[in-house]
Simulated scan of single mutants.
Amino acid sequence: MVLTRRAYKSIVRWLPNEVLSEVLGYMSQPDLLAPCRTSRLINGLATPLLYGSVTLSEIPSMEKFVSVLNKYADSPTPLSRHVREFSVVMFDDSSMYPRLAHQITTALSHCRNLHSLTLLLSNTHFSGMLRDSHFPNLRTFRYGVSPDVSTVLPAFITRHSTINTLAMVCSTSAMERDFDLDLIQLPNLKMFSADSYLIQSLVCDQTLQNICIYFFYPDFEACLKRLAPLVCTQKLRLLIKADEIDARAFFKYVADSIPQITELTFQKLRDSAPGADRLVEHLQIETQLRNLKHLRVLEFDNFEETQDRTEAEREMDLSLVKQWSAACPSLISILLHGYQWEYKGIWDIENVPLLI
């Protein structure tokens, strides 16, 4: 159906702006360009949606974004004020030339209303932004860590006490070198994701509720010892990404140091790593599970290339699930060998895949 000019004006005139904004909110960012050109009213409603969330992964799109922001930098309503989420992610940033990195830094300095900032690049680091910028409303920050930002990065994070979600990803060059970050202090941090050794730099007051830790080495005691005084005393979801870890010793340490944990997930770190059958096969963790009185979800995720299990194998899994739940009555969900077991009066498999 094509609206006549008169009908179009009638709709725009009588529908509340909130309704028009709601309708525009269902449109993708490329599709928002067209309504931006229809009228001043629609332009004013669509522009904040168009620039509210910016994700860049290619050099031409970065150059275009910087150019547009600079073009309207001195206008009464600069576009930078609309940006709430900004993300630059490049797995191969070798083509990122220094001048462009500087231009992005300058553009970001004008985005005072940022709530979420993600800068994940291998070889490019925005040291100038880390040193000078401040975003009063920043809640989420994700950054690629390297030795050359070991001082300015913690200072930037600590300066933003509003951050409640923090992810620090080490570049390959950083993983190959030993270096320490300065202390990071965040009084409101609830979600944290990082390599295990970066836990040593974190300071917060029992606020962490959701944690993802990457273990590239099997040693976990130092990490969990540091983690214990940082976590929320009420609930905790812990995701462990590792290829080789002594699960039995790990469970014992968790039971002793952070018994308030409510969700625990083991996940394979690298797809090429061997399977984890030996991780759960004959795993005698009942003693440790008895001390985890709040644990509701236990998962061994992404360890098998296929979910196909014979009926006999599923019966063995069910026996193991029942042993674990007897030791830990609070358990209501267990992911094992690719199957999700749920307790609803009895233990049963949810969404069983078709066996071929």
Rank of each mutant, 00 (worst) to 15 (best):
Ala7Glu: 13
Leu15Arg: 02
Leu15Glu: 03
Pro16Ala: 01
Asn17Phe: 06
Glu18Trp: 05
Val19Tyr: 00
Leu20Tyr: 04
Leu20His: 05
Glu22Ala: 07
Tyr26Asp: 03
Met27Arg: 05
Ser28Arg: 09
Gln29Met: 09
Asp31Trp: 05
Thr55His: 14
Glu58Gln: 13
Ile59His: 00
Pro60Cys: 06
Val68His: 08
Tyr72Gln: 06
Thr77Glu: 09
Pro78Ile: 03
Arg84His: 11
Glu85Leu: 13
Ser87Cys: 15
Val88Thr: 02
Phe91Leu: 14
Cys111Asn: 00
Asn113Met: 05
Thr118Lys: 09
Ser127Val: 15
Ser133Ile: 06
Thr140Trp: 10
Arg142Phe: 10
Tyr143His: 03
Val145Ser: 01
Asp148Met: 14
Val149Phe: 00
Thr151Cys: 08
Phe156Cys: 03
His160Lys: 08
Phe179Ile: 07
Leu181Thr: 05
Leu181Met: 13
Asp182Gln: 13
Leu186Gln: 04
Ser193Met: 15
Leu202Lys: 04
Asp205Ile: 06
Thr207Met: 07
Pro218Arg: 11
Arg226Val: 11
Leu227Ser: 01
Leu239Cys: 10
Phe250Gln: 00
Val254Ala: 04
Glu263Pro: 04
Phe266Thr: 01
Ala273Tyr: 04
Ala273Trp: 07
Val280Arg: 08
Glu286Thr: 14
Leu289Pro: 00
Leu289Ile: 02
Leu292Phe: 03
Leu295Asn: 06
Arg296Val: 13
Glu299Tyr: 10
Phe300Ala: 00
Asp301His: 11
Arg309Tyr: 11
Leu320Phe: 10
Lys322Val: 14
Trp324Glu: 00
Ser325Cys: 07
Cys328Asp: 02
Cys328Phe: 04
Ser333Ala: 10
Leu336Lys: 00
Gln340Val: 12
Asp348Thr: 13
Pro353Met: 06
